[in-house]
Computed example of a mutant assay.
Amino acid sequence: MPTILVADDDDRDRNRIGAILERDPSITAIYAVDGAEALAQFETAKPDLVLTDLQMPIMNGVGLVHAVRQKCGSTPIVVMTSHGSQELAAEALAVGAASYVPKSEADYELLNTVQHVLTLSTRRAVAPLPVELKQIRRVYVIHNDSQLITSLVGHLQENLVQVGLCDESDQIRFGVAIEEALINAMIHGNLEIDSDLKEQDSAQFDSLVQQRRAEQPYKDRKIEVEIELSAKQATVTIGDQGLGFDPTTLPDPTDPENLEKISGRGVLLMRSFMDEVQFNESGNQVTLIKRKT
Rank of each mutant, 00 (worst) to 15 (best):
124 R>D: 11
77 I>H: 04
122 T>Y: 10
124 R>I: 15
97 A>Y: 13
51 L>S: 10
87 E>T: 08
99 S>H: 11
100 Y>G: 00
126 V>R: 10
67 A>V: 01
86 Q>C: 04
59 M>V: 11
53 D>P: 12
112 N>A: 15
53 D>L: 06
71 K>Y: 05
108 Y>C: 12
67 A>L: 13
85 S>T: 14
94 A>T: 08
70 Q>W: 07
115 Q>K: 15
119 T>F: 06
72 C>G: 05
51 L>H: 11
73 G>R: 01
123 R>H: 15
101 V>N: 01
99 S>R: 00
50 V>W: 11
98 A>Y: 03
94 A>W: 04
75 T>P: 04
46 K>A: 12
88 L>D: 04
68 V>G: 06
82 S>R: 15
104 S>P: 09
54 L>S: 02
48 D>I: 09
49 L>Q: 06
108 Y>E: 15
93 L>P: 02
116 H>R: 12
118 L>Q: 09
60 N>L: 05
77 I>M: 06
52 T>D: 01
120 L>W: 08
85 S>K: 01
73 G>I: 01
110 L>G: 01
82 S>D: 12
92 A>C: 02
100 Y>A: 01
63 G>V: 02
47 P>R: 12
67 A>I: 02
108 Y>I: 15
87 E>N: 04
53 D>K: 05
56 M>K: 07
49 L>K: 03
106 A>N: 13
79 V>I: 14
124 R>E: 10
57 P>F: 08
110 L>H: 05
116 H>A: 06
102 P>M: 02
61 G>L: 00
48 D>G: 12
85 S>D: 10
88 L>V: 01
74 S>C: 10
50 V>F: 09
55 Q>R: 10
58 I>C: 04
95 V>I: 05
90 A>S: 12
111 L>E: 10
117 V>P: 05
87 E>P: 04
106 A>V: 15
84 G>W: 04
117 V>Y: 13
49 L>M: 14
116 H>M: 12
49 L>V: 03
74 S>D: 08
62 V>I: 05
74 S>G: 11
114 V>T: 13
114 V>F: 03
69 R>I: 05
86 Q>W: 01
83 H>G: 07
78 V>K: 02
107 D>Y: 08
91 E>L: 08
58 I>G: 02
55 Q>K: 10
78 V>Y: 00
113 T>Q: 07
